[in-house]
Structures are given as structure tokens and as C-alpha cells.
């Protein structure tokens, strides 16, 4: 589970952004909505352990990420947090399966080809196991992004604008897919987006507004 307290981030030459406290339990989803410029991505980066907050704490599974050394944080991130980015980026020299194997390796997990096959099957791309990422369609690449995010059995699944580039039909399909993963992995799902189309799919919502910047 994930909890934040008094999370604050301050960019140089700019007013600090204060974030409301967040708490998400395993098996639950939270949608963070907000227009551009309200600090959505900054929040996601802090939740994902990619960027330390200026003040406040991010606690995942009772461990405060602020207290970890850089090396510990790398491993912690690899094994506890899965992130689906807007852009699909993979190791182009490796096959789909090898990309997923590498992720497990980097997270410090034992190789498990059975798990890889299972995740690919769940996401509907089992036949792409030995393809190179650039041989996949856009939709398949997004599924692979999700596969990579969950392959290391994370307790937190973060998604950054997963639907904004998609049409209405695919937009809902992706959110369903993420929700399914959340359920089968029994992890916490946090989606950060400005896409209002998916808002009625999630009961837990946090809306960031420019007023977070003031005070």
C-alpha cells in the first residue's frame, strides 16, 4: 500500500506545490485528475521514486522511500513499483520476452518464464513473445508497457496518461486492462491523467487544481 504525508515539491524560481495526502490500499484504484501545469507529473515521479520530494514522505509497504540510499531506492523501485509511461520505450535489441526477463533481473527477482508467459497471455499478446518491440503495433506496445510494469510483481502500479492518446474505445479498453491487472496482481493502482473520459470509471478520485500552488 502507498501513503504520502505533506508532500511538497519546489522547483527553482517557482512557488512550492503542496499535495494533499494520498492513501491507496492493495486492490484499490485512485485516479488523479488535473489540468496540465498543476504538478501531476511531478507527483507521479515522486510516487514512483524517480525524484525525491522537497518535503514530506512517500511510504510504500511501510518503507519511507526518502530514507533509502540511492542504490537501495533503485532496487526498491524495481521490485515494488511498476510504471506505465505515456511513451512505450523498450530495449530495441531485445525481444519482448527478453525485455521482461531483463526487468525481473533488474528488480532482483529470479527468472520466471512461466510468469512472463502468463502476463503476456493475460494482456493478449502471448504470440509476440519472441518478436522485437518495434515489430509490435501501437496497441500491442502499450500492452507490453503494462506487462513490463507488472512483470516484477509490484505492489504499486502507476500509470501516466495511459489513455490520452487513444480514441474513446481504446481509452476505456486500456483503463479496463489496468484495472484487471490491479485485480489479478492485487496491487494498488494510481492513474495520473487529464483525460476526463475515464473519470466515471473510478470512484476514488483526487483532483489537483492550481490552488495547490498557492498559499
Amino acid at each position: 500500500m502507498l501513503a504520502t504525508t505533506k508532500l511538497t515539491y519546489k522547483y527553482a524560481n517557482s512557488k512550492p506545490i503542496f499535495y494533499p495526502d494520498i492513501k491507496v490500499e492493495k486492490g484499490n484504484a485512485l485516479l488523479i485528475l488535473g489540468q496540465s501545469g498543476v504538478g501531476k507529473s511531478t507527483l507521479l515521479h515522486m510516487l514512483g521514486g524517480l525524484m525525491p520530494p522537497t518535503a514530506g514522505k512517500v511510504v510504500v509497504n511501510d518503507i519511507s522511500m526518502n530514507d533509502l540510499s540511492p542504490k537501495e531506492l533503485d532496487k526498491f523501485r524495481g521490485s515494488n513499483i511498476g510504471i506505465v509511461f505515456q511513451k512505450s520505450i523498450f530495449m530495441q535489441a531485445l525481444t519482448v520476452k527478453e525485455n521482461l526477463q531483463l526487468c525481473r533481473k533488474l528488480a532482483g527477482l529470479t527468472p520466471n518464464d512461466h510468469r512472463i508467459a502468463e502476463v503476456l497471455a493475460r494482456l493478449g499478446i502471448p504470440h509476440k513473445s519472441n518478436s522485437k518491440p518495434n515489430e509490435l503495433s501501437q496497441g500491442e506496445q502499450q500492452r507490453l508497457s503494462i506487462a513490463r510494469a507488472v512483470i516484477s510483481e509490484p505492489s504499486i502500479l502507476l500509470a501516466d496518461e495511459p489513455s490520452s492518446a487513444l480514441d474513446d474505445k481504446h481509452c476505456l479498453a486500456v483503463t479496463d486492462l489496468l484495472r484487471e491487472q490491479m485485480e489479478s496482481e492485487n496491487c494498488a493502482l494510481i492513474i495520473v491523467t487529464h483525460d476526463q473520459r475515464i473519470s466515471d470509471r473510478f470512484e476514488n478520485q483526487l483532483i489537483l487544481t492550481p490552488k495547490n500552488k498557492q498559499i
Partner: peptide
């Protein structure tokens, strides 16, 4: 650059 960043996200250290 993107691939390397993605490896960091997945748990790789700068040394790796």
C-alpha cells in the same frame, strides 16, 4: 537515452 532511463525505472543503478 530512453532505453537507459527505462532500465533505471526498472531498478538498474547508474553503475549498472
Amino acid at each position: 537515452k530512453h532505453e537507459l532511463a527505462m532500465m533505471r525505472v526498472a531498478g538498474a543503478s547508474p553503475t549498472q
